[in-house]
Write a protein that binds this DNA or RNA. Structure first.
Lengths: 206, 206
DNA sequence: CACCTCTCAGTAACATTGTTACTGTCGAAC
DNA sequence: GTTCGACAGTAACAATGTTACTGAGAGGTG
């Protein structure tokens, strides 16, 4: 165990600030030029240090990728929470707002979406802890579903989790849209709405 | 234009056979060890030639990736066609069989699924022609939908293509299953069924 | 048959990338 | 003041995609 001295704290704070700087640079690079530009040398060059720093701080590229993965889910979580807050008190409205916000986030943060759900960073697979934590981004969705279910008395679906089902459906359409499968934005939007409407109707969540 | 002589033909036949050999080796490597093992040196080593051959034959790794991409869709197409053939004449049965076969194919050919829909091979994005051709794998699904629509008189959904919607929904659940998001196979299967049932009901395809 | 030419495979190199051993430096502790 | 420990920088290594150079073999031409 390390001794807790002012020095140690200052050092830790410095580490934390530096970590933030590195992450911001990596994030900017990811958003501006895509995952392909995310090389250790490029990042270190961007902030003016050697690659060694990245290794002592993140352990390797996987560690950095995982930090970006968490950041992506944090952004998603913020966006969903904001949308639900703005939607008012009706659970149905809150559910619908969550659905729209999910797609908007994916389109606004395509690069992050690729890190989170595509294999945008070649060797990377998130750790089980990161995956488990990522699901909390959907807490607001789960809440809306629970409220709505209480109101409508929708039946349970056995092993099928309603939140997971909605999420998977949204992901299917969004990932196709990001891959360019739809002719235009209007088609993508309509397909997305149709998919979510179908599933929430089937779940009895209206 | 090159002259068409027996020699040229033999050479072309040789090229074709060689191409097949290379593709088989790459395919075996992909299935056995995943996309990470797909290196030019590894493939050339596997068949006992130099990397130059791969470049003259496929133009580069992207060309090889695209060949595997097409192969993946060819396998999917075969599987869907077989399932539909075995399902009998009822369009509803044919639709349901297609849905099941899609998931079965994804699970049986995970590595291919990653090449086709994930970004399993780092720099690769399929050419527009390959993407356009890939959609023909779903011709049997489109046929089943059309038959069923004729029988049930289901309404049109405007810009939303019913086949695309079913496909995207199936993809959403399957890609999550491949990523390990579900606790067990039974949960995944139930979620998949629920998603497809929801969408086909919503489309009026029963 | 001798020579020329063209296609193409092999070798070996180059650039890029993740990663790490070695070295030096700077601050804390006694 | 000396010693020690943590950490950053340099420079290397291994792997990978790619390509310039070289050579061999086959067909055409005299």
């Amino acid at each position: 165990m390390t001794t807790d001295t002012p020095y140690r704290r200052a050092q830790a704070a410095g580490q934390e600030a530096l970590r933030r700087t590195v992450l911001d640079a990596a994030s900017a690079l990811l958003v501006a030029e895509g995952p392909q530009a995310l090389t250790m040398r490029r990042i270190s060059g961007e902030i003016g240090c050697s690659t060694t720093v990245l290794y002592t701080m993140f352990g390797g590229k996987d560690g950095l990728a995982e930090a970006l993965y968490r950041e992506g889910f944090a952004r998603l979580r913020r966006r969903l929470a904001e949308a639900v807050d703005a939607a008012g008190d009706d659970p149905a409205d809150r559910l619908a707002a969550t659905g729209r916000a999910y797609r908007e986030n994916a389109l606004a943060e395509r690069a992050y979406y690729g890190v989170m759900f595509g294999q945008a960073i070649p060797g990377f697979t998130p750790s089980p802890e990161a995956v488990a934590e990522s699901k909390h981004a959907f807490d607001v969705l789960a809440d809306a579903v629970a409220s709505l279910r209480e109101r409508t008395g929708a039946a349970d679906l056995g092993p099928v989790d309603a939140t997971d089902l909605l999420w998977a459906t949204a992901h299917g359409v969004v990932s196709f849209e990001l891959a360019g499968h739809y002719a235009d934005e209007a088609t993508a939007a309509a397909t997305y709405r149709a998919a979510l409407t179908a599933v929430s109707t089937h779940l009895g969540l209206r």
